[in-house]
Design a protein around this nucleic acid. Structure first.
Lengths: 109, 109
DNA sequence: CAAATATACATTGACAGGCGAGGTATCTTG
DNA sequence: CAAGATACCTCGCCTGTCAATGTATATTTG
């Protein structure tokens, strides 16, 4: 009933901003990194990944540019903006608060 | 952009199961208790609360019965079922895992 | 060399949860 | 008696997730 995707729901924006706060990257790579970090326990679905890019770009929290690969498939790189960094910082704080709140609400007496 | 409701999204079921695992209760009271526990930082919207009751009851994780108040507004009490307790236990574990995963994904290098 | 697999992008449409807005009824208190 | 608290409920919109589907290129393997 409650699946991992529901649990993580709402964090994809922050997760992607977090990755981009370290360095520019592209969709396929970000997904790979996430799988590595979580040891395969969590995978962003491609549809979700790309909708999230669209959303973040529309909100001007990231910008994109095409890579100049001369070989292999083309890559669309993303870079975080100042607004994105600010949002990321805020979301990090919210996550700390949320953890405390949910822990308190789920705590067994 | 990221609001508390998004953050808590997906946990309303578990939060309510958690409350009912302590004792039978009714909607209005559960909401009050949650506000107290979170010191007003989080409030379940009524629409959400009652949709959640319907969902949990349909899934046979809770059952309901009318209180026998002779005064005041009538109350519909809810009790957790065995299936509900099992689900609650599972969700608690999932929450622990989710915390670890999200922390890892949001951790700044 | 053909087929399979990996890399890399993208959209559409359905589904589910949250909730604003609206509604009903009773009791208490100033 | 008006206002506010207690207590319930539903409808319909919005938003995020994702299965399914599609495109194109490069590499590996039988």
């Amino acid at each position: 009933m409650l699946v991992m995707s529901d649990i993580i729901r709402g964090y994809t924006d922050t997760i992607i901003l977090s990755q981009l706060s370290k360095n520019d990257s592209y969709g396929y790579e970000i997904n790979k990194v996430i799988q590595e970090i979580t040891k395969g326990e969590y995978e962003l679905k491609e549809a979700t990944l790309y909708t999230t890019f669209r959303r973040l770009e529309a909100a001007e929290q990231i910008v994109s540019y095409w890579g100049d690969e001369t070989t292999g498939a083309r890559r669309r790189y993303y870079a975080i903006t100042d607004a994105g960094r600010a949002m990321y910082k805020e979301n990090l704080q919210d996550w700390q608060r949320a953890k405390t709140i949910i822990d308190a609400l789920l705590m067994e007496k």
